[in-house]
């Protein structure tokens, strides 16, 4: 490590893309197209209010409450709204229930469609060519990239999100979770399990 002093690295040391984004924002604010307070509120929403814990609550409730599971199956949008979730990037939600016979996997081959109100913003890999290209052609190979092997004989169903309908996978409730509270169940439901690239397990409980 050099002893070089980095205290000056704020004002004029933007990367080219940082400089472009700052210029874009300055211009749009100066022209009156955007309200800076709105920009901050949008960022805050996706940093602190909307994320995969929302979806995990939906799954945990579906595991705990058969009536809720039925409502979620019948009308995903209405059922997630019962928990206060919905809106931008998830106006029309369909819940895909895994069964012992069939596993579900979500992708958007054409862009980055993802159920924002319940899972938040998508991870980089979800938006990137390796996943988008191969999820439809070789879904089991993609699962292998995540270290997931499905049980022998379980079919796999891939949902390509080509419309404004957004999908969330409801995984099978793992063995060893009898009697758990919804809160404890939600804690073992990962983002990837709700995309279909992971399987929940009781051991994930800390």
């Amino acid at each position: 490590m050099s002893g070089h002093d980095h205290h000056h690295d704020h004002d004029n040391h933007f990367t080219p893309i940082e400089a472009r984004v700052r210029a874009l924002e300055s211009l749009m604010v100066a022209k009156g197209y955007v309200d800076p307070a709105a920009l901050d509120a949008i960022v805050e929403t996706y940093e602190t209010k909307i994320g995969p814990r929302n979806g995990a609550r939906v799954v945990a409730k579906a595991w705990s409450d058969p009536d809720y599971a039925q409502r979620l199956k019948a009308d995903g949008t209405a059922a997630v709204a019962e928990l206060g979730y919905g809106g931008r990037g998830g106006e029309h939600i369909v819940a895909c229930f895994n069964t012992p016979e069939e596993h579900n996997l979500i992708v958007c081959t054409l862009c980055s469609c993802y159920p924002w109100p319940v899972l938040g913003l998508p991870p980089v890999w979800y938006k990137s060519p390796p996943y988008r290209s191969r999820a439809v052609l070789d879904p089991r190979g993609v699962l292998a990239d995540f270290g997931v092997t499905l049980p022998e004989g379980q079919r796999i169903r891939v949902w390509d999100s080509t419309a404004e309908t957004r999908f969330i996978v409801v995984p099978l409730r793992p063995a060893g979770t009898q009697g758990w509270s919804e809160e404890a169940l939600a804690a073992i439901v990962s983002r990837d399990a709700m995309i279909g690239t992971a399987l929940p397990s009781a051991e994930a409980r800390r």
């Binding site: 081959t109 890999w125 990137s128 390796p130 996943y131 988008r132 290209s133 999820a135 052609l137």
Partner: peptide, 13 residues
């Protein structure tokens, strides 16, 4: 992108 090849494995961070 659906069905294209050559991008390598998915690399979750």
């Amino acid at each position: 992108l659906g069905g294209q090849m050559g991008f390598g494995p998915v690399r979750p961070e």
